[in-house]
Design a protein around this nucleic acid. Structure first.
Lengths: 249, 249
DNA sequence: ACGCGACTATAACACAGGTTAATGCAGGCG
DNA sequence: CGCCTGCATTAACCTGTGTTATAGTCGCGT
């Protein structure tokens, strides 16, 4: 647990994410505004805590690189992962608005985060209504992800859940510009997958083996490739709408 | 399925919810602004659809009276309830922002909804930044509810889940001004509870019986009373933060 | 008054997924 | 270089929860 301070900010003008086709273009002045509110870069090493459960809000962050996840734990150690965070995702909004983080955030890989000044949210609302609307869009979109996950945890079989998670993460990684050839980086351990789907680690393993033997997915060297997207979706009973361009802070 | 139009709006000035201690006071001019955007009252009878799954956004609504729920279904009929909606809750924000409702909304009891003009959201952002922030707060709060539910569905036992749901609904009903003596109205069928917790209806029944025999809850005549809140919370492993005042539209 | 549909309640049985335990492998570190 | 620790894997066994079936109650419409 390194008590990491903030490094000098990575310049927004050279942001590697913003040019990607999945992100929304900004209006005049908006980029400059965002860049001005950025106070630094936070680095967290794999396995460390980004935001502690129940902690007061430190900042609002955008995940620049690496993977993380939001989770809750019970006193006896049971843990539920609410959602995974990929590059471009925002975090800390709930904590900022609700005063105290209702969940923890932990880094899966080494992670770099763009930190925004403490009063950024409010100033966005005062001076850039369109950006404020984007912020609400992101909040609504975050809830949509959790809603989807909830359908898996509550009503899908283990097989269906795992398949749905793979499809969803593949698409999200792709939209974050992480796809190379037919695969995306895949840093999740089976324990993490289990905690996200409400399964045990053992059963998660059994299930992944089955998907492998069916030739639907390949996981090797920390990368995920999908053998047959059509079939995987069918197994998962998972169909999503094509994602519209999303805002990036 | 009655194709219900809009009745004349119930006047915001005589809103029965706003004076309740759990709602935030408004600044000058804000109430008038809200009242002006209100275009009518929508009534839906128990069991009918408020918003169809995958339907384009019709309006943004505030639930004035009655209970409803947000849900998703799979093609074979399995259903997951994401959250219950009680008086004072807002609905349709996601659909408005994401273009199409990612979930359906159905009325549990007869329901009355305050309908807002189609461009309300955007005009709030342009002219009342503080109200816009309230809107985002509500979005974040909605996600917090789902996060909590997800912990139940994913990691709590049936006993714990049901207990947690009862505690949470009791508190929410109370904050909506529905508590009389030691009980609140409780219109949910066991099937609805099952669909919210990812359980079967049969097992939900078994579990409720157990809680009853332990003397922790009483459900009768469509009302819920909690025998021993302390114990019920312990069974549920459920501890929440005291809720701050929430905005009401 | 009757029949019907929606809901609660219970029992008997089946199975998906949890638990425990043991093995192997790879990377980090003294 | 050998030891530890974290992770994937597999087997054997167990249990919480699902499934199917039956009955009882209540409210409602005709």
């Amino acid at each position: 647990m390194r008590r990491s301070g903030l490094d000098p900010p990575f310049p927004c003008e050279r942001c590697p994410l913003r040019p990607l086709p999945s992100f929304k273009r900004l209006q005049d002045g908006e980029l400059a505004f965002i860049a001005r509110r950025k106070v630094g870069q936070k680095h967290v090493v794999a396995g460390d805590t980004v935001v502690a459960e129940g902690e007061a809000a430190a900042h609002v962050f955008t995940l620049l690189s690496g993977w993380a996840f939001r989770f809750k734990t019970m006193s006896d150690g049971r843990r539920q992962i609410m959602s995974f965070l990929l590059p471009g995702d925002i975090l800390g909004l709930q904590a900022e608005l609700l005063d105290v983080a209702p969940h923890g955030v932990e880094a899966v890989t080494d992670v770099s985060l763009c930190a925004f000044a403490r009063d950024t949210v409010w100033s966005v609302y005062r001076v850039h209504p369109s950006l404020a609307l984007d912020l609400t869009w992101l909040a609504a979109h975050g809830e949509r992800l959790v809603d989807d996950a909830m359908l898996s945890v509550g009503r899908r079989t283990a097989m269906e859940s795992v398949a749905a998670l793979f499809v969803s993460l593949f698409k999200r990684a792709e939209s974050a510009g992480l796809r190379v050839e037919d695969s995306v980086p895949f840093p999740l351990t089976q324990t993490l997958i289990a905690d996200a789907l409400g399964l045990s680690a053992v059963h998660t393993n059994r299930t992944i083996q089955r998907l492998r033997r069916m030739g639907l997915v390949r996981i090797a060297d920390g990368r995920l490739a999908i053998g047959d997207l059509r079939s995987l979706r069918r197994v998962a009973q998972y169909w999503d709408q094509p994602a519209p361009l999303r805002p990036l802070f």
